[in-house]
């Protein structure tokens, strides 16, 4: 009899532990989501009251003058990200195609390994590298240097997603193409890569979303510029650097501009992320 009660106590204790741990894990989840909710809430509320038409059409106002906007920084961000994409996307896609279609062996291992390492290098270090590589020899900050820095950051992301996505293309498609006598390199470009387009685009969108929000690699490459300028050989304003400068300044007007910039940036990056991930997921669902 006593054995039975001991064991039922024991079972009860084990059940209680089980339930307690389940609640602890749920609590952890809530703790993880709380800051996200807070950030989204504050940026939306404070940003929405600060985003005006002027924000998209006017140049920054001098200190003390209310109003003004960030049209130069918006244009600058688009330009620098476009330049980064022109560098990062082709290199990433062709490198990824190599890894998936050719890259066995030691060399392929090294490429994968260094791509992962490059992905983990802090963005500020990439900024210092581009500073030493481009800004020092040309003797001034430039939009070009900023674009190259962002391009370098995009390469590892695009390379690894392209590799994975191209790998998913069924072998039968390639074999059908070979059977028709189409050379390997044409098959790669017109059959394999084209079939994987949706997946590769997903990777590109994620990479663009990531560099769109980057500040650190632009601080001393693209620098900043209070005026309207689209010249790539000159310092250029970007939304992230502008946001940073406004956020740490002591003026309320500038803080409002910072929240507005945060809302615009956050909307862009989240839309790109959601689009990329839903597209990627749908592709996977079809593949299975």
């Amino acid at each position: 009899m006593s054995v039975a009660t001991i064991s039922s106590d024991h079972v009860r204790r084990r059940r209680l532990t089980d339930r307690a741990m389940t609640w602890m894990c749920l609590a952890a989840l809530l703790v993880a989501i709380a800051p996200l909710a807070s950030v989204l809430g504050y940026v939306t509320l404070r940003g929405a009251s600060s985003v005006t038409w002027d924000f998209f059409t006017h140049l920054p106002a001098p200190v003390g003058e209310p109003g003004g906007g960030m049209v130069n920084a918006i244009a600058g961000t688009l330009l620098v990200v476009a330049l980064g994409s022109c560098i990062g996307i082709p290199i990433g896609i062709l490198g990824g195609l190599y890894l998936s279609e050719v890259g066995g062996g030691r060399f392929g291992w090294w490429v994968r390994f260094t791509a992962d390492v490059l992905n983990g290098i802090p963005s500020i270090v990439i900024g210092v590298f581009i500073y030493a590589l481009i800004v020092v020899p040309t003797r001034h900050f430039s939009g070009f240097a900023g674009g190259v820095a962002l391009g370098v950051m995009m390469i590892p992301l695009v390379i690894r997603t392209t590799e994975e996505m191209v790998r998913l293309v069924p072998a039968s498609l390639r074999e059908a193409s070979y059977a028709l006598g189409i050379p390997w390199w044409v098959t790669m470009l017109r059959i394999t890569l084209r079939t994987a387009t949706a997946g590769v685009l997903t990777g590109i969108m994620l990479a663009v979303a990531r560099v769109l929000g980057e500040t650190a690699p632009l601080l001393f490459t693209a620098f900043n510029n209070p005026y309207w300028s689209l010249r790539l050989d000159q310092p250029i304003a970007t939304m992230t650097v502008q946001l940073y400068n406004y956020a740490i300044a002591p003026y309320d007007d500038w803080h409002r501009q910072a929240w507005a910039a945060a809302l615009v940036l956050m909307t862009l990056t989240l839309v790109l992320n959601v689009a990329a991930k839903t597209a990627g997921r749908r592709r996977f669902a079809n593949g299975r």
Binding site: L36, V39, V43, G213, Y244, A247, A258, M266
Partner: peptide
């Protein structure tokens, strides 16, 4: 759905988290 939400947190630019850090 929950994984997706957690991953969105990683997508928020760090300068925006900094802005939130200063004021909240």
């Amino acid at each position: 759905v929950l994984s997706f939400i957690i991953e969105l947190l990683a997508a928020i630019p760090s300068v925006i988290l900094g802005l939130w850090g200063i004021f909240v």
